[in-house]
Simulated assay, not measured.
Amino acid sequence: MQVQDDTRPYDSINVTPMLDLAYVLLVVFILMTTASVQGLTVNMPKPSNKPSTEKHELKVVQVMADGALLLNGAAISMADLERQLADARARDPKMSVAIKGDARTHYAKVVAVIDLCNKLEVGMGLVTSRIGT
């Protein structure tokens, strides 16, 4: 019996396992990239370059730290606020309300004012300030 001694070096490298790994990594990269792009679609309003010539009534409602309500700087109860906003809406259907909530107040008080504006179908906005100002 004769044993063959084949000690020649290999001429080529089998690259099939490396290609399989590269394809798997490519597929994982594609899946992870498309998964991170998904989210909510939001249509932002477009700004208008035309100045508004219409003047509508604006009421400012402040929710103080202790939960007290101010309408244009004057103290008011929730029932009176509802009555005054309903009267203002009857005079001007496009009137709006700016809501300023103190940072130390309970959020439920601000939500109550927002719910009131929704109930009366009054346009509203939340007044914010820049961080650090």
Rank of each mutant, 00 (worst) to 15 (best):
G39R: 13
V97I: 08
K100T: 02
D87E: 15
K50E: 12
D87L: 15
A98L: 07
I30S: 11
V61G: 03
L26K: 08
K94E: 08
Q62V: 01
A86F: 09
E54W: 10
L19P: 03
V42E: 13
P51V: 05
V60H: 07
V63R: 00
K59A: 03
V28F: 08
M44V: 11
P93C: 01
V37H: 12
A98P: 02
S52R: 11
A88L: 11
T105N: 07
S48I: 09
P51G: 03
R83S: 10
T105V: 01
Y23Q: 02
E82H: 11
I30E: 09
T34I: 13
Q84F: 11
K100P: 00
A88H: 12
V61C: 00
T33Q: 12
D20K: 05
S77E: 05
N49K: 14
R89A: 11
D92G: 04
R104T: 02
S48Q: 15
R89E: 10
A86C: 03
S48K: 15
P93F: 00
D87A: 15
V27T: 06
T34V: 14
V63P: 00
A68Y: 09
S36N: 09
M18L: 12
E54G: 06
T16K: 15
V97G: 04
A35W: 13
L70I: 00
M78P: 01
N49Y: 14
I76F: 11
F29S: 13
M32C: 09
M44S: 10
L26F: 12
D80A: 07
T34W: 14
S48P: 06
L31E: 04
A35C: 08
V27D: 03
V24N: 03
A103P: 01
E82Y: 12
Q84Y: 14
K100Q: 08
S52T: 06
V28C: 05
K50A: 10
V15E: 05
